[in-house]
């Protein structure tokens, strides 16, 4: 909690903002069922379209931002969000990396528009989907599609306590080992993005026999030249590899560079 709020004795004001997204990450806040009452006692939820009927204007102590920037209007609006926010935290793959909608970055948006809409006269969209950090300074980024509930609470409680959130940036492999899941690459030959993917989900997919699909984006130490041959060994061809890297975090710089390199051959 900032000194100012402590001196005033008032609850910090929380805002939740939506840009291009499915809303899943901001709904994670409402998913904090057991903690929701305690949370609303500690912060004033001043702006949250999904939960508050009368949004409050003014400065916000903590802004949680969901979604990526895909329209000129949103590119303007995010400047406003930054201007009225003391701390700005992005929620999930869209806000942190551009989301699945960043697949447009690899194609011609005008073509999509013509194919999808009978009349595209009212469609005003940008050629790219970009993360919030491409537009304004961001104080903290939460990974995931969707974010992890525990990590969201960690960010909020860390903010209230005035400490740094603890969201390890190492690989998902750490979490499989800590959870006791035998490596599905080694024991079953299942392609898995775990070795290059940021931890935070608790290694959910491998625990159910499915390869990690990288929804938390790149870890803090990716080694794609060593890693991609492993995907090929386990049956992936170039198209498979490119598709595996081009999902929710396709525009994350490490995933983007690796998929472009594969595509070029």
């Amino acid at each position: 909690m900032g000194d100012e709020e402590r001196e005033n004795g008032r609850r910090p004001r929380l805002a939740v903002w939506k840009f291009a997204s499915c809303d899943g990450c901001q709904l994670t806040l409402l998913d904090c069922e057991d903690e929701l009452l305690a949370l609303s006692g500690k912060v004033e939820v001043a702006f949250f379209h999904e939960a508050v009927t009368a949004p409050d204007e003014g400065m916000y102590d903590l802004s949680l931002v969901d979604g990526s920037i895909t329209t000129p209007a949103d590119a303007e609006r995010v400047q406003h969000v930054r201007a009225v926010s003391r701390r700005l935290v992005t929620l999930g793959a869209c806000a942190t990396a551009g989301g699945i909608q960043a697949l447009r970055n690899y194609a011609d948006v005008a073509e999509f528009r013509a194919a999808v809409y009978a009349s595209d006269a009212y469609i005003d969209t940008l050629a790219t989907s970009t993360p919030i950090s491409a537009h304004v300074p961001v104080d903290f980024e939460l990974r995931g599609c969707p974010i992890d509930r525990g990590q969201l609470l960690e960010v909020i409680t860390a903010y209230l306590a005035g400490r740094t959130p603890d969201t390890p940036a190492h690989s998902v492999c750490f979490e499989c080992k800590r959870r006791g899941t035998p490596c599905i690459v080694v024991a079953r030959g299942i392609p898995c993005l775990g070795p290059v993917t940021h931890a935070g989900c608790g290694a959910l997919c491998p625990a159910y026999g499915r390869g990690c699909y990288g929804c938390f984006g790149p870890s803090n130490s990716t080694k794609f030249p060593a890693f991609i041959p492993l995907l090929r060994r386990d049956g992936m061809n170039t198209l498979d590899v490119v598709r595996a890297l081009r999902t929710f975090n396709t525009a994350a710089p490490e995933f983007d560079a690796a998929s472009r390199k594969e595509e070029l051959g």
């Binding site: 305690a38 603890d166 750490f174 080992k177």
Partner: peptide
């Protein structure tokens, strides 16, 4: 890959870190 699997699987690797957890009440 610098993925850390070897250290986690090793029966003698012992390194740890600490995490401080606070709750919403503070």
């Amino acid at each position: 890959l610098t993925c850390g699997n070897c250290t986690m699987a090793c029966p003698t690797c012992f390194c740890t870190t600490v995490e401080d957890v606070t709750d919403l009440t503070g």
